[in-house]
């Protein structure tokens, strides 16, 4: 039987209020109530919810960018939460994150090639003489020409920058890629390209992906299993045996209904045959 690559067990997090007027930390509403799930090798797992639902907090806890208050993050049989900073640094390579805003997550003064090379050198994944070839390979993998290495991030559009961010994550040769709203700030037409790229990478590199977003239709397309979050809690897991159209939780249905789609527009228009056009 195939073992999960990641097992999240009862991970929770609350942010205590700081400062003079802070109340007792124990009274703070948790940003994330204890959450548990498993991620299989080569699986794309979706996490969906509105802003403030705790989906980003969950992602940050899995990547240990944030230390959870309780619970365990089991990766290859080892609890990452129990590790100290130094031990953790060695494991960070394996779980990489791509963030929502590709304008804020690239150093504007670092050429794209240097940004990718830095990752490889820090993690000692390539010798200096091989770095250039490897950079070209990575750029090719995300559909950018190798001459992109010589440009600064400012020369690229939002969609291209997100490809660069993905290439930088891949430079670390991760086992797990966490994509936190990677397409939410992109044009619809470009969203499709980035989603297709993630599907290609999963196929080619057997990468496990956690894809976070608020567009349930998009997530349902690429993730066979989707975790639905509301107010810091996992309220439902859909997919697998339960198709999303059979989702039971009213919040999941509300999420589905809220996505504007052309099918809905067509249905609305045909129900009002003479729409006043002026």
């Amino acid at each position: 039987m195939v073992e999960p690559i990641l097992r999240v067990e009862g991970v929770s997090k609350s942010y205590a209020r700081r400062g003079l007027l802070a109340r007792d930390a124990t009274t703070a509403r948790p940003a994330l109530s204890p959450a548990s799930f498993e991620l299989m090798p080569g699986e794309i797992l979706g996490i969906v919810g509105e802003s403030g639902s705790g989906k980003t907090t969950l992602a940050r806890c899995i990547a240990l960018l944030e230390r959870p208050d309780t619970g365990r993050v089991m990766f290859r049989g080892e609890d990452l939460v129990a590790l100290n900073e130094r031990e953790l640094r060695k494991r960070r390579r394996a779980i990489q994150t791509v963030f929502q805003d590709p304008y804020a997550s690239l150093n504007p003064r670092l050429k794209v090639g240097d940004a990718l090379a830095e990752v490889m050198l820090v993690h000692r994944l390539a010798e200096r003489r091989h770095v250039r070839g490897r950079v070209a390979e990575l750029l090719d993998q995300v559909g950018l020409p190798s001459r992109a290495a010589h440009d600064y991030p400012a020369a690229f559009s939002g969609g291209q920058r997100q490809r660069i961010c993905i290439a930088r994550a891949l430079a670390a040769q991760p086992d797990i890629l966490i994509a936190d709203e990677p397409v939410s700030s992109l044009d619809v037409s470009v969203q499709a390209q980035v989603v297709n790229l993630l599907l290609d990478l999963r196929d080619r590199l057997q990468l496990s992906v956690i894809f976070i977003g608020h567009d349930l239709h998009l997530i349902d397309f690429l993730a066979p299993r989707v975790i639905v979050m509301l107010a810091g809690e996992i309220v439902e897991t859909v997919g697998g045996d339960v198709p999303i159209t059979d989702a039971r939780h009213p919040y999941t249905r509300a999420l589905m209904d809220a996505v504007p789609s052309l099918e809905k527009v067509a249905a609305r228009q045909s129900s009002t045959p003479e729409s006043p056009s002026r």
Binding site: E50, D215, L216, D257
Partner: peptide, 10 residues
């Protein structure tokens, strides 16, 4: 509504 999530956008 581009910076907002789907329910708020709606």
């Amino acid at each position: 509504t581009t910076a907002l999530d789907v329910i708020v956008q709606d």
